[in-house]
């Protein structure tokens, strides 16, 4: 899990890299042209790219573990949903308030919880997700419980709304690209180096005067912010929210994307999000065996690219050297 070299830094100009990006671009172009159901799949993948990119900052760069980022996505999503439907807010301020709420929650929860390490941290964060889920179910006066909230307006500012599927796809591509670029910027910054140092050896980092606890909390809050934005985007894209949207399957999904794509890399979260979203669809012809084929594909990927799809260029380079 320690390949922190971004696909851009190491694989620049590599044929395998260009092939991957080329395939992705071709797929997007194809989807854009044909429209229909695939557009929804791709929109979903791009929203998850934002979520997983944030999770990667906490897990990949900083070497921590969180099973509770669905909580922050839920805070962002429900803030957007409730404020725009019940109170008639504009989507943007609603999203920003959700973001602030998620940051405040991450600060309050992270401060005590981040003292834990490894499995204990995993269990504590899992609890955060479960608590927020319960709140979403029980706080019926606001969240409408299992019924959920429908009629959430599309994203937009004032009279300008992104209503069409294709326009939303373009918008989400821009947002996902910004998420990746900002993550790359963080990784290359002083802050990012402190994150990676904390992941490498906490004691060594502390012995150098790096306040590890503070940087872990910072990473936790930054990744919570990405999750909150993803949550808001999700409810606006779908127009509906219920507690199930931000349940445990979201955690499992984001973990799968992170590891299949390549944890610790910049491109990994996007690659993972796209592959994991598209893969089940492409096995639709297998009918009853769809899940089986999907599972088998995951296993094959993780066997042959254990550090994720983002490490493929490296692997292919090594393979070429060996055969040369």
């Amino acid at each position: 899990m320690n390949s922190f070299n971004t696909i851009w830094a190491k694989g620049r100009g590599d044929r395998a890299t260009w092939l991957l990006w080329g395939l992705a671009a071709a797929f997007v172009a194809y989807t854009f042209a044909t429209g229909g159901y695939l557009i929804a799949v791709l929109q979903f993948a791009l929203i998850y790219t934002v979520l997983v990119t944030g999770l990667n900052i906490f897990m990949g760069f900083t070497g921590q573990v969180s099973f509770g980022h669905n909580a922050f996505a839920a805070i962002g999503g429900y803030s957007s949903a409730v404020l725009t439907t019940t109170y008639g807010w504009e989507p943007l301020p609603a999203c920003l308030l959700g973001l602030a709420g998620a940051l405040a929650c991450a600060l309050v929860v992270g401060y005590p919880v981040l003292r834990l390490r490894g499995h204990y941290l995993a269990m504590a964060t899992l609890a955060i997700g479960l608590i927020v889920y319960e709140v979403a179910v029980q706080w019926q006066s606001v969240t409408q419980g299992y019924m959920g909230i429908s009629g959430i307006p599309p994203i937009g500012i004032g009279s300008f709304t992104i209503a069409s599927d294709r326009a939303l796809l373009v918008f989400l591509m821009i947002v996902a690209a910004l998420a990746m670029l900002s993550a790359a910027g963080i990784r290359r910054s002083r802050l990012g180096r402190a994150f990676v140092a904390a992941a490498g050896s906490e004691d060594a980092a502390r012995a150098l005067g790096i306040d590890v606890a503070r940087y872990k909390l910072t990473a936790f809050m930054i990744s919570a912010a990405y999750a909150a934005i993803a949550g808001s985007l999700f409810v606006h894209a779908v127009g509906f929210v219920s507690p199930e949207v931000f349940g445990l399957p979201m955690v499992v999904m984001s973990f799968t994307m992170l590891y299949v794509g390549g944890i610790g890399t910049i491109a990994g979260p996007a690659l993972g999000a796209i592959i994991i979203s598209v893969l089940p669809e492409s096995f639709r012809t297998f009918k009853d065996y769809q899940d089986l084929a999907y599972g088998a594909a995951l296993i094959v990927i993780l066997i042959y690219a254990p550090r994720g799809l983002a490490s493929l260029p490296e692997l292919s380079a090594r393979w070429r050297r060996r055969s040369a």
Binding site: N2, F4, N5, V196, A204, A205, A207, L208, G209, G264
Partner: peptide, 28 residues
């Protein structure tokens, strides 16, 4: 910050980072 610095047992270098980045972290 006072000027007491430890080179820990087993070195504690940050393996995934470059040599230059490791040095930078020393002067954090």
């Amino acid at each position: 910050a006072l000027g007491i610095v430890l080179v820990p047992e087993g070195r504690g270098i940050f393996a995934p980072m470059t040599v230059a980045e490791n040095l930078e972290l020393g002067a954090y």
